[in-house]
Computed example of a mutant assay.
Amino acid sequence: MEKEICRISIANNWLGDEYIFYENGTIKRIYDNHSMSSNVTEWLEPGQISKLNKDKLVKSCPEELKEQVMHILDYP
Rank of each mutant, 00 (worst) to 15 (best):
E63G: 00
M70N: 13
Q68M: 07
F21R: 04
Y22R: 08
L65R: 13
K56M: 11
H71P: 07
D74Y: 05
L65W: 06
L65M: 13
M36N: 14
W14N: 13
D17V: 08
P62A: 13
I10L: 10
L57P: 02
K3V: 11
E23Y: 11
E18P: 01
Y75E: 07
S37H: 10
L65G: 00
H71E: 15
K56Y: 06
I10H: 11
P62E: 11
L65K: 15
G16I: 05
K66Y: 07
K28L: 10
S9P: 01
E23W: 14
L44M: 13
H71M: 14
Y22T: 04
P62W: 06
P46H: 05
H71L: 12
I5D: 00
E45T: 15
S35E: 10
C61T: 15
T26V: 09
I72H: 12
D17T: 01
L57S: 01
V58F: 02
M36C: 12
R29W: 06
K54G: 04
I5Y: 04
N12I: 12
S37C: 09
G47P: 00
D55N: 11
P76M: 03
H34D: 15
I72M: 15
E64I: 07
Y19C: 06
G47I: 10
I30R: 09
V69H: 01
S37W: 08
D32W: 00
R7E: 14
K54E: 02
E67W: 07
P62G: 09
I8S: 04
G16W: 08
E64G: 04
K3G: 03
R29P: 07
P46I: 00
M70E: 15
N24F: 11
W14P: 01
L52H: 09
P76W: 08
K3P: 00
N53M: 06
S37I: 04
K54R: 05
Q48T: 11
I20Q: 15
S37F: 11
D17N: 13
I30G: 02
N24K: 14
P46C: 03
S38Q: 14
L57Q: 01
P62T: 12
A11L: 09
L15D: 14
A11K: 15
H71V: 09
G25H: 02
D32N: 02
W14F: 13
R29F: 08
M1Y: 08
E4A: 06
C6F: 05
P76T: 03
L44D: 08
E23H: 15
Y75N: 02
M1G: 12
K3H: 07
K59F: 04
